[in-house]
């Protein structure tokens, strides 16, 4: 075997592969092309993950729901929750920035992989945190509805439209539908995140395990 590998080595070193040589212009053109590396994708997706949830507040109808929170008597908690939420989000963004800056293609392979996985892990924790907050949010609204005694007043539009409904029935219906919506929403998001990162980092993780396996 050793001889065969030596034979291969000799051949390999004199080998000019059957590939047309690239000209100066070819290479020059390439350096301005956009990279499609894993690191770039992580950056793009992470920025989207930080930014997109914030846009929810600009959706039409969000003002109405702020009114609903007021009517339900939870707007005070909502404000407190928002402030702590943003404090944590900024902490995550800062951590992400620190780790992202550490990634360098000049590192050795194992370090490079480890740093990419670490950066990605920061985003993963952020996603888990976001999902937990969303769960808490749905739960809080459902609780608020449950504890509210004047449900038609809290949801004036629905209340007017469904005058024939008894308030109790309305309450239960609202709670159940919110519960189902919340579950679907959170399950859908989790599935999306984990599939996305599985696709993106599957190969990298395999190679990292391979490199780490011997180092005990």
């Amino acid at each position: 075997m050793t001889d065969e590998l030596e034979l291969l080595k000799k051949d390999w070193q004199k080998k000019e592969f059957d590939i047309p040589k690239l000209s100066y212009e070819d290479i020059h053109k390439m350096i301005w092309k956009k990279s499609s590396s894993v690191v770039k994708w992580i950056l793009i997706i992470s920025i989207l993950e930080f930014v997109l949830p914030q846009f929810l507040y600009f959706l039409p109808g969000m003002e109405d729901s702020m009114q609903v929170y007021k009517n339900l008597g939870v707007s005070r908690y909502f404000l407190g929750l928002s402030i702590s939420y943003y404090a944590v989000v900024f902490y995550f963004i800062y951590q992400f920035y620190l780790r992202f800056k550490e990634i360098s293609v000049l590192d050795n392979s194992k370090n490079l992989m480890r740093k990419i996985i670490k950066t990605r892990r920061t985003v993963k924790y952020y996603v888990i945190f976001s999902l937990a907050i969303s769960t808490l949010f749905f739960f809080a609204i459902i609780m608020a509805i449950y504890l509210n005694n004047d449900i038609t007043h809290a949801f004036p539009e629905i209340g007017n439209r469904l005058k024939d409904f008894s308030p109790d029935k309305l309450k239960v219906t609202l709670m159940i539908s919110l519960g189902i919506f919340g579950l679907v929403f959170i399950a859908g998001l989790s599935l999306f995140y984990f599939l996305l990162y599985g696709l993106l980092l599957g190969k990298l993780k395999k190679n990292y395990t391979e490199l780490s396996r011997l180092e005990i």
Binding site: S37, L106, S109, L204, N207
Partner: peptide, 24 residues
């Protein structure tokens, strides 16, 4: 890079890192 190592030595590292880590 700043010429600390030979251009080719430095290339091995970047090329391999791209192939096994960054390229998907």
């Amino acid at each position: 890079f700043r010429g600390e190592a030979k251009f080719s030595t430095w290339m091995y590292r970047v090329a391999l890192n791209t192939a096994i880590t960054l390229y998907r």
